[in-house]
Simulated scan of single mutants.
Amino acid sequence: MNPQHGIWISELVRVYDVTWATSWNHDANRLLAPLLGIAPLPVLDMPSIPYHPSDKVPRVDRLARHRPAVWIDDLHTPQAHAWAGGRPEPTLLITTEPSTGLTRRSVDQALAWAVDL
């Protein structure tokens, strides 16, 4: 956990509809949100563990609908890239390093992308 993550997520919330899309599911709000000092976020329910990371794609697609979307994750599968490339709506995938997680650079990239829309 980086103490800055809560600040960064709060910055993103001012621009985006930020949603947890993690195997933590609702535990993200119960365990992570208080540690980060953020309000609970909507949760995109994931299947029970273990699941293949590509199983996130249809769920993210339903959430994004026909809106521009930024998806920050530590594992974008080939299916995620195909989905992003095939959408008519602007779509940005930001892949983080699993050992590092969310970085200031990723947040700045997402915020700059929103301005450019």
Rank of each mutant, 00 (worst) to 15 (best):
residue 11 E to D: 15
residue 50 P to A: 02
residue 68 P to E: 01
residue 32 L to K: 14
residue 69 A to C: 15
residue 83 W to F: 06
residue 23 S to C: 07
residue 29 N to V: 04
residue 84 A to N: 02
residue 94 I to D: 00
residue 101 G to I: 00
residue 15 V to E: 10
residue 69 A to R: 02
residue 83 W to I: 03
residue 108 D to P: 10
residue 114 A to T: 09
residue 46 M to F: 05
residue 24 W to K: 12
residue 67 R to T: 10
residue 107 V to S: 02
residue 55 D to Q: 12
residue 90 P to S: 12
residue 37 G to T: 11
residue 86 G to M: 09
residue 54 S to H: 07
residue 101 G to S: 00
residue 116 D to I: 08
residue 90 P to D: 11
residue 44 L to P: 03
residue 30 R to I: 12
residue 103 T to N: 00
residue 59 R to I: 01
residue 80 A to F: 04
residue 10 S to G: 13
residue 91 T to Y: 09
residue 111 L to Q: 10
residue 104 R to T: 13
residue 41 L to M: 03
residue 42 P to E: 02
residue 9 I to V: 15
residue 29 N to G: 04
residue 69 A to W: 04
residue 41 L to A: 04
residue 74 D to Q: 00
residue 1 M to A: 14
residue 70 V to D: 01
residue 1 M to G: 13
residue 5 H to D: 15
residue 87 R to A: 07
residue 92 L to I: 07
residue 63 L to P: 02
residue 3 P to M: 08
residue 27 D to H: 14
residue 89 E to L: 09
residue 100 T to S: 05
residue 19 T to I: 11
residue 15 V to L: 07
residue 94 I to V: 15
residue 106 S to C: 11
residue 1 M to P: 09
residue 74 D to C: 00
residue 21 A to W: 02
residue 109 Q to L: 15
residue 17 D to H: 12
residue 51 Y to A: 10
residue 34 P to S: 05
residue 14 R to T: 14
residue 18 V to Y: 06
residue 9 I to Y: 08
residue 4 Q to F: 09
residue 61 D to E: 11
residue 45 D to P: 08
residue 66 H to A: 14
residue 6 G to R: 08
residue 67 R to P: 07
residue 60 V to P: 05
residue 47 P to H: 01
residue 16 Y to K: 01
residue 109 Q to V: 13
residue 36 L to I: 06
residue 100 T to F: 00
residue 79 Q to M: 07
residue 77 T to R: 05
residue 46 M to C: 09
residue 1 M to F: 12
residue 115 V to M: 09
residue 1 M to K: 09
residue 60 V to L: 08
residue 24 W to Y: 14
residue 66 H to Q: 14
residue 106 S to V: 04
residue 62 R to V: 09
residue 84 A to R: 04
residue 9 I to E: 06
residue 63 L to I: 02
residue 96 T to E: 13
residue 72 I to Y: 02
residue 79 Q to E: 15
residue 114 A to E: 10
residue 117 L to M: 13
residue 100 T to A: 03
residue 95 T to E: 15
residue 106 S to E: 11
residue 46 M to V: 07
residue 109 Q to R: 15
residue 76 H to I: 02
residue 73 D to Y: 05
residue 25 N to I: 01
residue 99 S to F: 07
residue 6 G to V: 06
